[in-house]
């Protein structure tokens, strides 16, 4: 009973982190048809910024986190304007290589500024304890991650389903040329979406630092994980990303609890099975 509860709580928290990081990747990949291997770099940048703001500038956590997220978005914007908008037009092979190149530069840049050791993100005391939910105690940090993840899902749903920006974004995903022809500034939508995705990745990176520690090699170490969430979920599908992140988070956590020796094999076998059965992902369009 307690094992199942552990798997559920850890798995859902892990899934939320994966979702926050991967959802931006999924939307940008669906929208711009770009394979972006450097997306994890924004989680790294967010983590590195918050590390600097907390440990060097001494800002309070609740101020440092939003600042780091905004800072990441501010860095993502010129990257989109200068690099990515050219990469959209490349073939997929060139996209893979160009974005690997960008990931390398991000790693080298963070290492140059902060070194290659683990970047600690000290959380406030309020987030360190455990909460008694009656039947068991749960780490406060897990609860914060899960609540933040669910809040993100709700916000994204409202943004995409209920706002004009969301309609325009979906229109541009469906058909870029037609959207432009009808007066939708697709370039601006791309840039806004890209920055939003980068900001979400930064938040996911910061909140998930306990599970996926922040260090310079972060973008390459977890790149495959994030991309698999996107592939399994289906390009451009937020619901798909959510299901995939939650599912893979649970599968990974469960297999580590239950079959610790074969966790990785089990995880990848699941991914292969899903993708073999549904090459376009769970919610992807064929």
């Amino acid at each position: 009973m307690s094992l199942i509860a552990n798997i559920l709580i850890d798995g859902v928290a892990y899934g939320m982190v994966l979702f926050m990081i991967a959802v931006g990747l999924s939307v940008t990949m669906g929208l711009m048809r770009v394979i972006n291997l450097a997306h994890g770099g924004f989680a790294l940048i967010g983590g590195a910024l918050v590390h600097g703001l907390l440990t060097r500038a001494g800002l309070p956590y609740l101020l440092a986190v939003p600042l780091a997220v905004l800072g990441t978005m501010a860095l993502a914007w010129p990257m989109e304007r200068v690099l990515y908008r050219r990469i959209y037009r490349f073939g997929e092979l060139q996209q893979v290589l160009a974005t690997i190149g960008i990931a390398f530069l991000m790693i080298a840049g963070v290492n140059y500024l902060l070194g290659s050791s683990l970047l600690s993100i000290p959380v406030p005391e309020a987030m360190q304890g455990a909460v008694d939910l009656g039947f068991r105690k749960v780490s406060m940090h897990r609860i914060v991650v899960i609540v933040a993840g669910l809040a993100m899902v709700a916000c994204l749903y409202l943004l995409l389903d209920r706002t004009r920006f969301g309609m325009r974004l979906r229109a541009a995903v469906d058909n870029r040329d037609t959207a432009a022809m009808l007066g939708i500034n697709t370039g601006a939508i791309y840039a806004a979406t890209f920055c939003l995705g980068a900001g979400l990745a930064a938040l996911g990176g910061i909140l998930g630092a306990e599970l996926l520690p922040i260090e310079a090699y972060y973008p390459l170490r977890y790149m495959v994980l994030f991309l698999m969430v996107v592939a399994v979920g289906g390009l451009g599908s937020i619901t798909g990303s959510f299901l995939a992140a939650l599912g893979l988070g649970l599968v990974d956590t469960a297999s580590r609890y239950l079959v610790p020796d074969f966790g990785t094999i089990f995880f990848f076998a699941c991914v292969i099975a899903i993708l073999a059965a549904r090459p376009a992902g769970l919610m992807g369009r064929a």
Binding site: A171, V173, D174, N175, A179, A180, M181, G183, N185, G187
Partner: peptide
């Protein structure tokens, strides 16, 4: 840019109609 032409008052109804399927 195409979207600015739309703002200037040009409007095309494409042959393929291109209804946004997710809307």
């Amino acid at each position: 840019a195409t979207h600015r032409r739309s703002a200037l008052g040009l409007g095309l109804v494409p042959q393929t109609r291109d209804i946004f399927a997710s809307l």
